[in-house]
Computed example of a mutant assay.
Amino acid sequence: MARKDGINRGIREIPLGSGIWWVDFWHEGKRIRKKVGPKAQARAVYERLKTESRLGTLVPKPVRKHEPLFGELAEQYIRYADLHHKRKGDDTPRLKWWLDAFGDKLALTLKPYMVEEVMEKMNKEGYKPATIARCLVVLKAVYNRAVKNEIIERNPIARVFAPKFDNSLVRYLTTDQEERLFEALPERLHPIVTVALHTGCRQGELLKLVWEDVDFNAGTIFLRDTKSGDSRRVLMNSKVQEVLLALPGRDTPGAPVFTDTLGGPMEGRNLRRDFDRAIKKAGLAPFRFHDLRHTFASRLAMMGANDRTLQTLLGHKSQRMILRYAHLGPTHLWNAVEGLASSAKKRIGTDTKGISSEGRKPKSVENTGAGNGIRTRDPRLGKAMLYR
Rank of each mutant, 00 (worst) to 15 (best):
I7C: 09
G10S: 14
R12P: 03
S18D: 07
W22S: 08
D24I: 09
F25K: 01
F25Q: 00
K30I: 10
K30L: 07
R31G: 09
I32K: 03
K39V: 00
A44R: 04
E52H: 02
G56D: 12
Y77H: 12
A81K: 03
H85T: 09
G89N: 07
D91T: 07
P93R: 13
R94H: 10
L95F: 10
L99C: 13
F102R: 01
A107T: 03
A107F: 02
L108P: 01
L110G: 05
V115M: 04
E117M: 08
E120Q: 14
E120T: 13
G126H: 10
A130Y: 00
Y143V: 06
R145T: 05
V147G: 09
N155G: 03
I157K: 00
V160D: 11
L169A: 09
L169C: 05
T174Q: 12
H190F: 09
H190N: 11
V193D: 02
T194P: 02
L197T: 06
L197F: 07
G200M: 01
D213Q: 12
V214E: 07
A218I: 03
R233A: 10
V234L: 07
M236N: 05
N237F: 03
Q241M: 13
Q241H: 05
Q241C: 09
L245M: 09
A246Q: 08
P248K: 02
P248Q: 06
R250N: 04
G254L: 07
G263V: 11
P265Y: 01
M266N: 04
R277Q: 11
K281D: 06
L292F: 15
G304M: 05
A305E: 14
R308G: 13
T312C: 08
T312P: 01
L314T: 13
L314M: 15
K317P: 10
Y325R: 00
H327C: 08
L328M: 14
W334A: 15
A336K: 15
E338I: 10
R347H: 12
R347S: 12
D351K: 15
P362R: 01
P362H: 06
E366T: 13
E366Q: 14
T368K: 15
T368Y: 15
G369V: 04
I374C: 08
R377V: 11
P379Y: 11
G382K: 01
R388H: 06
